[in-house]
């Protein structure tokens, strides 16, 4: 079963993503900030990461840098879910970000579709 790591500091939003992924047969691991995210990646390498950019403590960019620092974690495709309207995929792709989902307009199924699209070549 493919594992997806959801990094979301708002637990109810994380629950929502988890329900959608589990309903489509994915195993989901959760983290609410950068430290637990790194531990989770080490314990159970995910096929994809879904993450918010608003994280407690060390921010999301620090986490993205950390993931890009290792050859194995740098290969994990990242999907960013954010309400920030001015995010540019070209600017985030050097950090391993493959998709940006606008959380203000996303629909059920968008998360799963994004995971499928970034893991199709794995």
């Amino acid at each position: 079963m493919s594992t997806v790591l959801v990094i979301e500091s708002e637990p109810w939003l994380g629950d929502h993503y988890q329900r959608q992924l589990e309903a489509r047969g994915y195993k989901v691991t959760r983290a609410s900030h950068a430290y637990t995210a790194i531990d989770s990646v080490d314990e159970t390498p995910p096929v994809a990461i879904i993450m918010s950019l608003l994280l407690d403590g060390p921010g999301a960019l620090n986490l993205l840098h950390e993931l890009q620092s290792y050859t194995d974690t740098a290969k994990i495709p990242i999907i960013v879910c954010s309400s920030m309207a001015d995010l540019d995929l070209d600017e985030l792709s050097p950090y391993g970000v493959k998709r940006i989902i606008n959380s203000t307009s996303m629909h059920p199924g968008d998360i799963v579709a994004a995971v499928r699209s970034v893991t199709i070549d794995l």
Partner: peptide
């Protein structure tokens, strides 16, 4: 942020 959560 709360509105996004409420919508979802």
């Amino acid at each position: 942020s709360p509105l996004v959560l409420m919508r979802q």
